[in-house]
């Protein structure tokens, strides 16, 4: 009897553990969605609505599509975003990258920018990723203050090289993507 009891308790515990984990996972997922994802969707929807309904889009399209539908233009965008003084300013929350990404997405959807430029564009709009967050990120990794002092400029300067390089790699990696 004791053995059966023990078995039942073990089964009950492990099932409860798994169900509890799944339930908690669902709760976390919904919370993230409500707190982080949906507000941004609302914001992005407003911007897209504004672009589509007012025709501002055509002007933006003329300005952006020129630079976003050639390798040279995308490289220029990535160099500007990677300038050490600008990159920490463009970084926070990836808001700039998300807005520019959305604008480009609208233009790609309309056919102003060729679809195969999507991949290099993803890297061109984002060489500044995390540049606003270097001291905090290093502190999370328990870095010494001396390391932070060297690390901040090291990452910023590195981006000047690796930002445009990423665009070139992405450009060559996008061959054969969405050609037809």
């Amino acid at each position: 009897m004791d053995a059966i009891n023990k078995l039942l308790v073990t089964i009950g515990r492990s099932v409860g553990g798994v169900v509890g984990t799944l339930y908690q996972a669902g709760r976390d997922a919904v919370e993230t969605t409500i707190r982080n994802v949906i507000p941004f969707m609302a914001f992005i929807s407003f911007i897209i609505g504004l672009i589509l309904a007012t025709g501002i889009g055509d002007k933006i399209a003329n300005a952006i599509s020129g630079s976003a539908s050639s390798l040279g233009g995308l490289l220029l965008v990535s160099v500007v975003c990677a300038i050490p003084v600008l990159s920490p300013l463009l970084g926070p929350g990836a808001v700039i990258a998300q807005i520019v990404g959305t604008l480009l997405g609208v233009e790609i959807g309309k056919g102003t920018i060729p679809a195969q430029y999507a991949l290099p564009a993803l890297f061109a709009i984002n060489p500044q990723v995390g540049c606003d967050f270097i001291p905090v990120g290093l502190a999370l990794g328990e870095a010494e203050p001396e390391t932070v002092e060297v690390g901040v400029p090291a990452v910023l300067f590195s981006r000047l090289v690796t930002g445009p390089l990423a665009v070139v790699i992405a450009y060559f990696a996008s061959f054969g993507l969405y050609n037809n």
Partner: peptide, 19 residues
């Protein structure tokens, strides 16, 4: 997920084209 639109912004254009 808070920065989903870096990806979703551009990819929605691709989706709109039916790819």
């Amino acid at each position: 997920p808070g920065e989903l639109f870096v990806w979703a912004g551009i990819s929605s254009g691709i989706a709109a084209l039916g790819f």
